[in-house]
Structure formats: structure tokens, C-alpha cells
Simulated assay, not measured.
Amino acid sequence: MRPTARRALAAATFAAVLTLPGPASATTTPEPAHARPLAGLRVLLTNDDSMRAAKASHSDGLGLYELRRALCAAGADVVVMAPWQVQSGKGTAVTNSGALTLSRRTGLPAGYGDDCARTPSGSPVYGVCLAAGPCGPGSPSATPVDTVRLALRGALAAKAGWSDGPDLVVTGINSGPNVSAQVNDSGTVGAALAAVEEGVPAVAFSTTGDDSGVNFPRADYRATAGYAARLVAGLRAHDLLTSRFALKVDYPDVSAGQSAKAARWTGVGHGQEVWHTYEPSGSDTFDIGYGFCEYRPGDACTETVPDADATALLRDGHISVTPVTTDRTYGVRSTDRHRLNRVRTYVEHDGPRP
């Protein structure tokens, strides 16, 4: 495409981004073609919370359906291939033997059945289990990275006809933030890293949830999904979708009516916001539990990195946007510093507001 044509397309798409419905919109009424800034974009959507969306706490995949709705409303063609069971904490784990089976979900959660009905692929939702035959209620699950590699290395071509796609991998919306030391454990982030390893741009989304730490209100998922669609549309309009690094986006809790603050460009913190504990419950047995930071003055686990994702999100209430790569060496090394700076400038100055 010639530069003048590319600039014209970006300008037209960006204008559409500005009119994209915000997080409160949940309509399934078709938008005019010019108001659908993700038209023609093929998206693989996965998570680490499964595709079940059955728990009252909304911790097992409801965010995936809110994200699917928002992306389709913006014009994207979305195919879901997600873990069969909850796989939270699996990081970049992969399965080394056996077989993976896709099971298409025919009855989607109430209220989400017609969200993507008009897409070219029909936007199927698949769960991926570790089995040589049909997935059953107790079948073990594929990991988040398994789902991405399976999709990119054959399943999307077989099931959706995308022999040269997708254009983007989106992961989430995770039930809970993925910040600081938790990033290494995150299957949501691990799946995004698997995509960029395969040369496909990727964005990972997580939301904080309410003060209880165990409930994840629909309002948080919906706000995150609305921002996600507008962010992806803006990155696309400015030719900033890249496979050089993934973007990790964490959205604050807005379920009590508070507003999220504008996106802040952050780094992965070094603290531990949530950690595993192991309490003896027998001579050779230890129960797994959790410890939490509370951001009180003098709290020993408060983050010390100045631009940390956890500080921006949990203390200051900002949307946190963090570039992440599979290179986990100390310090910063980038072969594409210009693009990294362009993405940062867009996020901080020109990107969507909450």
C-alpha cells in the first residue's frame, strides 16, 4: 500500500475508533461498516480461565465472552480456542505428549449467544482438552500455550480456514491482575508470549476484581473489554500492532462506580502482590494458600520499582500497559526501540481514555 493510501486508511480508521461504543455498550445491533474499526481483522482469542463461564464468582472465563463481544462489535472476526479447564498459574507450560482435542461449545453463556453471529467464520468457541477422544467433564485441559500453538500450527486452518492467520492473538480477560512477580506465573501472559514467538502480534488483558479478591464483577470485565477493543483499534489504525513484543494490559476495579485513570506505561515490578503459601497439614502434606500485599504504609512487600505495573494499577488506579517479551535477561534490550517508543507515545498521549 502506498504511504498516502496508508495514511488515509489510518485517518479513516482512527475516526471510527473515536466513535466506537464505550464499555457500557452491550448492543448487538450491527454498526455501519465505516464505524467498525476492526473490520477484516482476524483474532484468535484465548485465556487461562477456560471457556466455561459457569461460576458465580465469574472467575472461570466470563471475561473471555465480554472480550469476544467487544471485538466482534468493532468488526473483528474472532475464533476462540481456550483451555477446557481453568489453567490459572500455568505460565508458559506446555504439554509434551499425548493428544489435544477441540470441543466446540454450542450453547454459549446466557446473553452472549448472538454476539458474533455475522462474522465470516461464525466465531466458534472451542475448548481444548488433553485427550485422544471427545472432551468430557473431567478431561484434563490443554495449557494456555498449548491452545495458541495448536491454533497457529494447524487448528485455525482446519476449523476456520485461516491458513495464513490470525492477524492478532488476544488473551484474557483474566480474573485478577497479572503484575509484578505474578507475571511469570500468568497463563494469560504466557499465551501472548507464545503468539509473538510465532510471529503474531498479541495483547493480554486482565482485570482487578473487587475488594474481596475472589469475585470478579461483570462491570470490570465490560469496562476492560470496551477499552481493549478501542486500544486494539487504535494500535491497528496507527500501524502499531507488532510481534516484536506483547502488550500486557491490566485494568483497575470500577465495579463500585469509580473511574479508571488514564493508561500509564509501566514495567513489570519486582515485588510480590500475591504469593503462594504452604502450610503443613500432615507429616508429608502441605496445603496451598495465598498471601496478599495490602499497600499500607511501611508494608514490607510494597513495590519499589518506580514505574511498576502494580503501583500504577493497585495503588494509583491507572490502567497499566506494559511491553513484555520472552527475553527475561536483566535490563532492557530491544532491536526495535523506535517502534517501542511509538507504541508508548500512542498509549500515553493518543490512545483511548477509560
Rank of each mutant, 00 (worst) to 15 (best):
G291H: 08
D239C: 12
N174G: 14
I173W: 01
A151L: 05
G190Q: 04
D185A: 13
R218S: 12
A35T: 10
G199M: 09
H34E: 14
G267C: 08
D164S: 13
E273M: 12
R333Y: 13
Q182F: 09
G111H: 11
V254W: 00
L314S: 03
M81W: 02
S243D: 15
P323N: 08
F286P: 05
R105I: 15
A56C: 09
E303N: 10
R342P: 01
G317V: 02
P352Y: 03
A308C: 09
L44G: 01
T95S: 14
R244M: 08
A33T: 13
K248M: 15
H318D: 01
Q258W: 07
A219K: 09
T208E: 07
K248H: 11
T302Y: 05
A191T: 07
P144F: 03
D239G: 13
N47K: 05
A260V: 05
G165F: 01
G298R: 09
L235Q: 01
A237Y: 02
T304F: 08
P134I: 09
P354T: 10
Y251E: 01
I288P: 00
L71G: 01
T326E: 11
P134G: 15
P177E: 06
T207F: 04
A15K: 12
P166G: 05
L193P: 01
E197P: 04
C129R: 04
S320T: 03
A39G: 09
G75D: 02
S141I: 01
A8V: 13
R339A: 07
V145T: 10
T95D: 06
F216D: 04
H349L: 12
A56I: 08
L314Q: 04
W275M: 09
T345L: 10
F292L: 12
D309Q: 06
G291D: 09
G40L: 11
D220C: 11
V43P: 02
L193D: 00
S334Q: 07
Q272L: 08
V347H: 03
D309E: 06
R236A: 11
R42G: 05
T311E: 03
D49G: 03
V125E: 02
P37K: 04
V179I: 15
E348M: 14
V347A: 03
M1F: 14
A11C: 12
S243K: 08
S180M: 04
Q258H: 11
